[in-house]
């Protein structure tokens, strides 16, 4: 593998990280806290690409023999390194979207974190009060129902058709990257299903008793209003 090709492959890896960092699309793939690591890696790879390009230039001027006799390490690079261009091509050609209804239907969430010692704090003041989908699920399933009862909440998520009928308000939760994502799901009552993957802000009230009664740990919300919204920049929740 020539040094010029090596430089291009290093550059494509740097370009992948730089593009995702600059466009903010990195949030489709990894946690927000990864941004500094992505930028630093892109800079290191860019520097490596520049050096490799300079070596290629120098080798071309000296003639091919010098490279063979002199250092020659470049020839050990496996052809699999060509695949380093593939992630960048995928991002440019397929333009992946954040994981949505397809993954939310398939995934199975771990049991939510148990109630904090001393029980759940009451929800903040406000009507409706803003909560995350996963926080709603956690309170409903882990004995925090009294803090939800009678409170109007507003939550953002995307619509996922329930294969058994009806629809869920869903949000993907990631621990590390999208490969380990699992869904937080709330069954919606009293509102027509938006198209799959449509992002909405849902205002409603917990249906008392749901979430811990069925073993599936999917609580239900009685919807007052379902408003379409734009997809948030950070599509996953912790």
């Amino acid at each position: 593998m020539s040094r010029a090709l090596q430089a291009i492959l290093l550059l494509s890896a740097a370009a992948l990280l730089a593009r995702l960092a600059v466009t903010g699309e990195y949030l489709y793939y990894v946690k927000p806290s990864m941004l500094p690591a992505l930028v630093a890696s892109a800079l290191v790879l860019l520097a490596l690409a520049v050096f490799a390009g300079r070596d290629a230039w120098a080798a071309a001027e000296e003639g091919p023999d010098c490279d063979h006799a002199g250092h020659g390490h470049g020839h050990g690079t496996p052809r699999a390194a060509l695949l380093l261009a593939l992630p960048l091509l995928t991002v440019l050609l397929i333009a992946p979207a954040p994981l949505g209804a397809f993954s939310a239907q398939r995934g199975s969430p771990p049991p939510p974190a148990p109630a904090p010692a001393g029980g759940f704090e009451p929800l903040p003041a406000g009507d409706p009060v803003e909560v995350t989908v996963s926080e709603f699920v956690r309170r409903a399933t882990e004995g925090g129902g009294p803090t939800l009862a009678g409170r109007r909440v507003v939550m953002t998520g995307f619509a996922t058709p329930n294969p058994d009928g009806g629809w869920w308000l869903t949000r993907m939760v990631i621990a590390c990257c999208a490969a380990d994502a699992y869904p937080a799901r709330i069954a919606v009552r009293g509102a027509d299903a938006p198209p799959a993957d449509a992002w909405v802000a849902l205002t409603g009230t917990w249906v008392e008793g749901t979430g811990s009664d069925d073993g599936l740990l999917i609580p239900a919300v009685a919807a007052d209003a379902v408003e379409p919204i734009a997809r948030p920049a950070s599509p996953y929740q912790r």
């Binding site: 890896a13 992948l16 990280l17 995702l20 990195y26 489709y28 793939y29 990894v30 990864m34 690591a37 992505l38 630093a40 890696s41 290191v44 790879l45 992630p87 995928t90 991002v91 397929i94 992946p96 979207a97 954040p98 994981l99 949505g100 209804a101 397809f102 993954s103 590390c176 990257c177 999208a178 490969a179 993957d197």
Partner: peptide, 24 residues
């Protein structure tokens, strides 16, 4: 579309998550 999209997202995410650690 959805399956191809999820495939692409998971593929890129594994690579993007791993690259900084590989560089380190």
């Amino acid at each position: 579309g959805p399956r191809l999209g999820a495939f692409a997202t998971v593929f890129v995410s594994i690579v993007v998550q791993a690259l900084p650690f590989l560089v380190l």
